[in-house]
Computed example of a mutant assay.
Amino acid sequence: MSGRERIEGRAYPFGRRNVDTDVIIPAAHLKTITRAGLGQHAFETVRAEPGNVFDDPVYAGAPVLIAGDNFGCGSSREHAAWALVDMGVRVVIAPSFSDIFSGNAFKNGIAAVVLPQAAVDRLLEVACAQPVTVDLETMSVTTPLQDRFVFEMDPFRRECLLKGLDEIGLTLASEAAIAAYEAATPSLNWGRPLSLSTA
C-alpha cells in the first residue's frame, strides 16, 4: 500500500444503488491466484451497457468512484476491492457501504468515504465535467466549483491510509517491540508438560 494525503482526479459518476460484489467483479473471475488483471473485468455487466461510464475515455484511470447507497453489498469476496485497486480506484464515495466491503476496501488501501445523499448527488453532477479532490488530512471532498464536503472516518483507518500501512506493515512497524518481547520471554520446552509445582 502507498500512503497519500490527497487523491485528486476525475471521478466515475456511477451513482447506482445496491451494487453488490458480483457486479463489481463477477464470480467467473474469482479463480485467479493473482490480483493483477482483475480490473479489466470489474463492472463487466455494467460495461455491457451502451454509454457506460467505465468505458468512457474521459474517466479512464479515474482514482475516485462515486457510488450509490449500500455499495459493496452481497458476498464477502475481497476480490471486489482487488478489482477496484487494479483499475486504479483509491477512493469510493457513497451514502453507505456494506460493512464487509468497507473493511476489505480499507485493508487494500481504498478510502470508503461516507457522505449524505445530497452531497453525493452534487458530486455526481460535478464529476461529469470536473475533477474531485479527497483530502484525508482535512477529511474533506472538494471540487473546482467551490464545493466542500466534510466526512468522518475511524481515526485508526485514517492513519493507516495516510501512512500506507496494511496488516503486514502494522506488524513490521512494531518489529522492535516484538523483538524486545521475544528476547525477554523465556523459551518454553513444548516437548514436555510444564510443571506447576512451586516446590
Rank of each mutant, 00 (worst) to 15 (best):
F149N: 06
D56E: 10
E175P: 00
G51M: 09
G37S: 05
A127R: 02
P186I: 13
T142S: 15
L161R: 00
T34C: 01
Q146C: 04
R16P: 00
Q146A: 13
S98Q: 02
D56G: 03
P26D: 07
E175Y: 10
P116A: 09
E167W: 12
P50F: 08
D55C: 08
R16M: 13
A119M: 05
L124W: 08
F97M: 03
R47F: 07
S2E: 14
Q117M: 05
P193D: 15
F43E: 04
G68D: 11
V64D: 04
E182S: 09
D86K: 02
V134Q: 01
A28N: 06
S174M: 14
G3L: 07
F71M: 10
L30M: 08
S197H: 14
G51Q: 09
N52G: 07
P57V: 06
A11I: 07
A173M: 10
A179T: 14
A105N: 01
M1T: 06
L136Y: 02
S195Q: 13
E167A: 14
S195W: 11
G191C: 08
E78C: 10
A173C: 05
V113K: 02
V58D: 11
D69H: 13
C73R: 09
A199D: 14
T185H: 08
V114T: 14
F97D: 01
V19H: 04
L194T: 13
E44A: 14
S96N: 10
V23A: 13
D20Y: 08
S174R: 15
A176T: 14
Y59C: 02
P144V: 04
S102C: 04
E8P: 01
F156Q: 13
P193Y: 14
R192Q: 15
N52I: 06
M1I: 09
R6P: 04
G191M: 12
H79S: 13
S98E: 00
A176E: 15
M1G: 01
V120K: 10
I178C: 03
A179C: 03
P155S: 10
D86F: 01
G51F: 09
Q117D: 11
I168H: 12
P155F: 09
G68H: 11
Y59E: 03
V89D: 00
T143V: 06
S197V: 15
F151D: 03
E175S: 12
L145W: 00
F71C: 06
A184Q: 15
M153C: 08
V126A: 11
G37M: 04
T138C: 06
C73G: 12
V23E: 11
V85G: 00
A81C: 04
A118L: 06
L136I: 09
D154Y: 10
P131H: 07
Y181H: 14
D55L: 12
F156M: 11
A60H: 11
D86T: 02
P116L: 04
M139Q: 15
Y59M: 03
V85A: 07
L145S: 06
M1S: 08
G109S: 05
G15N: 07
K163M: 09
A94L: 07
W190P: 02
V23T: 12
D147H: 08
G15K: 03
Q130V: 01
R192E: 15
R4Y: 04
A173D: 14
C73A: 10
L170A: 04
D154H: 13
D69S: 12
I7G: 02
I33V: 04
F106A: 14
R158E: 06
N104F: 00
A83R: 02
A177V: 10
I25A: 01
G103P: 01
